[in-house]
Design a protein around this nucleic acid. Sequence first.
DNA 1: GCCAACGTTGGC
DNA 2: GCCAACGTTGGC
Length: 137
Amino acid sequence: MAYWIMKSEPSAYSWDQLMKDGKTNWSGVRNFQAAANLKAMKPGDRAFFYHSNEGLAIVGIMEIIKAAYPDPSDKEGRFVQVDVKPVEPMKTPVTLAAIKSEPKLKELKLVKQGRLSVSPVSAEEWKLLCKMGGVKG
DNA sequence: GCCAACGTTGGC
DNA sequence: GCCAACGTTGGC
């Protein structure tokens, strides 16, 4: 099983909204590197939900429930989306500041490549982030 | 609201 | 195939 971080601006689509919806299709990714990550996802993979611009924190854990398929909002058919469902909210949101101040997370893609909206997380990083958020994962 | 970083596009 | 210009993202 692989681990990921997926970003969304709360004003566009928030964790609360995902909890209400029960599941959603993660569409609108328009970056080839992020799209490549989407394509690498398998059902059962886990992903953190990160609030960008406002909040600046990991707020919950999601599960990938459907592998990548074409994003209908992309007319040229170059990009894909996956389906996700919420698993559990973080007890304590893991803020970007906290992540940056943790030396073990120096290599985290979220830190090194801030603009990438879908990025991989190693198993070690995943464990640590769960711990910081007060959840088992 | 500003600005830095980076990805994408298009001209050559 | 390179590189400058441009647009977008996201932290502060």
